[in-house]
Write a protein that binds this DNA or RNA. Structure first.
Length: 272
DNA sequence: CTTATCCCCTGCCGGC
DNA sequence: TGCCGGCAGGGGATAA
């Protein structure tokens, strides 16, 4: 589920919870989280270390530890960090990792579908994580200029939505924000990237950081919104609103599938 | 290089 | 009520 805005909220929370804190003990509850690592390697890397900084790039969280190592986390679809003395209410979702802090509080990683992954790399060599090594510039911290985006789009006939979601090109955009960005830009999601006008490319470049900032603001107001969970309010213009009127023109919103992902668009407002 | 399909997992929701 | 297919905001592997 989480895309750049939700991962950014996580980074801000983890800064408040972890920065400057020492991890007294750590328990990997689900070994699948550390698939590919030596058994016990994550525990060894974290135990007794102090978290010096929390960073985000694309959809990746990076926890820099004293001693020169960095823990890289990808939340995938359903991962999330919670602090027990912060998040109210019972019914904790499945716990995969527990960090017990020296200060006494506890931070847990929950992940219903168990797709989340963790790596440990030298802080000086984050590229040791191959996924991270292939990641393009962050869509918010290093937004592409219209010229840079045009350089990417003119070289491929893939749909513009697929290109926006390609983490090797742009880091951080996923299915929801690709949908919302293309709506704001007035561009049809299935338009081949190399057929877009300069004006369309410029518009996509312009609305991308705007849309992400809006989402960070919306997601900051309370608990992160995880659509599909009970009580989750859909704050998006088009996403998962097939058949409902377009907020701009009233035309019923259409759902299609692009690259295997549910895609929503307004056939009137979005042009090829 | 590209697309398509499947896979990894679990849970929810709507329809019958 | 109960079952069942569809769907889900991630990415990788594989085949064509």
């Amino acid at each position: 589920m989480p895309e750049l805005p939700e991962v950014e909220i996580h980074a801000r929370n983890l800064r408040r919870w972890l920065e400057g804190e020492r991890i007294a003990a750590c328990e990997v509850v689900d070994a699948k989280l550390t698939a590919g690592m030596e058994p016990g390697a994550l525990e060894r890397a974290l135990t007794g270390r102090r978290v010096q900084a929390v960073r985000r790039t694309g959809k990746y969280l990076l926890l820099d530890l004293d001693g020169g190592e960095t823990v890289v986390v990808h939340l995938r679809m359903t991962g999330r960090f919670v602090r027990d003395d912060y998040v109210a209410g019972p019914a904790p979702r499945p716990t995969r990792l527990v960090l017990n802090l020296e200060s006494g509080s506890r931070v847990r990683f929950e992940d219903r579908r168990r797709f989340g992954r963790v790596w440990v790399v030298d802080t000086a060599n984050p590229g040791a994580c191959s996924e991270l090594a292939a990641l393009g510039p962050d869509a918010l911290l290093q937004p592409l200029s219209p010229e840079q985006l045009a350089e990417i789009t003119r070289k491929t006939g893939r749909s513009i939505k697929t290109v926006l979601m390609d983490q090797r090109r742009i880091g951080g955009l996923g299915n929801i924000y690709a949908v919302e960005i293309l709506f704001r830009a007035g561009v049809a999601p299935d338009a081949p990237a190399n057929t877009l006008s300069n004006a369309q490319v410029r518009e996509i470049a312009r609305v991308t950081p705007e849309c992400l900032e809006w989402a960070i603001g919306a997601q900051s107001r309370g608990e992160l919104i995880y659509l599909g969970e009970k009580g989750a309010e859909n704050v998006f213009d088009l996403y998962r609103r097939a058949g409902q009127p377009c907020p701009r023109c009233g035309t019923p919103i259409v759902r299609s599938v692009i690259g295997g992902r549910g895609t929503y668009y307004c056939p009137t407002c979005q042009q090829r």
